[in-house]
């Protein structure tokens, strides 16, 4: 399972590593070779105790790293812009998903469909997905490793991430930023599916007997570990915006603490 962003990131990793290995490997070999060749017991090796400067060597040792960094810098400039998490992906109208980090689970709201889920993210394959990410708790970090990219989730702030899956399949996403006791289990299933399957999935969610509202949100806001997948047949318009604006007034003072949920 992969996607264009993850593929591009992997390619960049390989290219940059390859370029650097051109210097790193010779340095390691030189270190070992010089150490062996000029060992004190080797009387046949040359010995120039006062040789401590050489213009040629100086220019080379400043030059090689400088050229290397110059090459990498152009790569960085291009690819940072090309792979900017905020940059919409080509390939048509993206699916908009709003992701909210809770202790220790993820809430996904599909504003275009008016539905929401906990710990299950379905996306159509081969179509860009645009995430809006925030947190109702401590800072989290949103990632789907197979698709690449990563972005912080912070209360009262909205960050963005644009991803795409190449083909249908099942993956796992998670929080990468330590956030307390339930952090290791804070994962969610990512189901990439065909458009037809995706429509079917939407209908299944709509068939749920639960709705996302203040009461059910307060319920899922309670800290819990490895929370089960939950479907909400409806999610009010503007719910995500309300969380962003009103995160200060959420009822979280004592009941979402690590101690309240931990042991």
């Amino acid at each position: 399972m992969t996607g264009p962003i993850a593929e591009a990131e992997k390619l960049l990793l390989l290219k940059a590593s390859g370029l650097m290995l051109l210097v790193v490997v010779p340095v390691i070999l030189m270190a070992l070779a010089f150490a062996w060749r000029y060992r004190a017991t080797n009387d046949r090796a040359a010995y120039s105790p006062d040789w401590d400067r050489s213009r040629v060597v100086e220019i080379t040792v400043w030059g090689i790293p400088a050229i290397m960094v110059g090459l990498l810098a152009t790569m960085v400039w291009d690819k940072t812009h090309a792979l900017d998490p905020y940059k919409p992906l080509p390939g048509g109208e993206p699916l908009l998903v709003q992701a909210v980090a809770l202790n220790w689970k993820w809430l996904f709201i599909y504003p275009d469909h008016g539905i929401a889920t906990v710990n299950e993210l379905a996306i159509p394959a081969d179509r860009p997905v645009s995430f809006r990410v925030t947190s109702q708790v401590a800072m989290n970090s949103f990632i789907i490793p197979d698709l690449g990219g990563q972005i912080y989730a912070m209360a009262g702030m909205e960050t963005q991430l644009n991803l795409q899956a190449n083909e249908p399949g099942k993956m796992q996403g998670r929080n990468m930023q330590f956030s307390g006791t339930g952090f290791p289990q804070q994962t969610f299933d990512v189901l990439a599916m065909t458009e037809a399957d995706f429509d079917g999935w939407i209908e299944r969610v709509r068939a749920s007997d639960q709705a996302l509202d203040d009461r059910s949100f307060a319920e899922i806001s309670q800290p819990s570990i490895a929370a089960p997948v939950t479907y909400f047949a409806s999610a009010p318009q503007g719910f995500f915006a309300g969380l962003l604006a009103g995160s200060a007034d959420m009822p979280h003072a004592a009941d979402t603490t690590a101690e309240g949920a931990g042991n």
């Binding site: 993850a6 591009a8 990131e9 990793l13 940059a16 790569m75 960085v76 940072t80 990219g149 972005i151």
Partner: peptide, 11 residues
Amino acid sequence: VLLAIPPINYA
């Protein structure tokens, strides 16, 4: 240096 390349850092 790899970590300093932002797209690699994201991953």
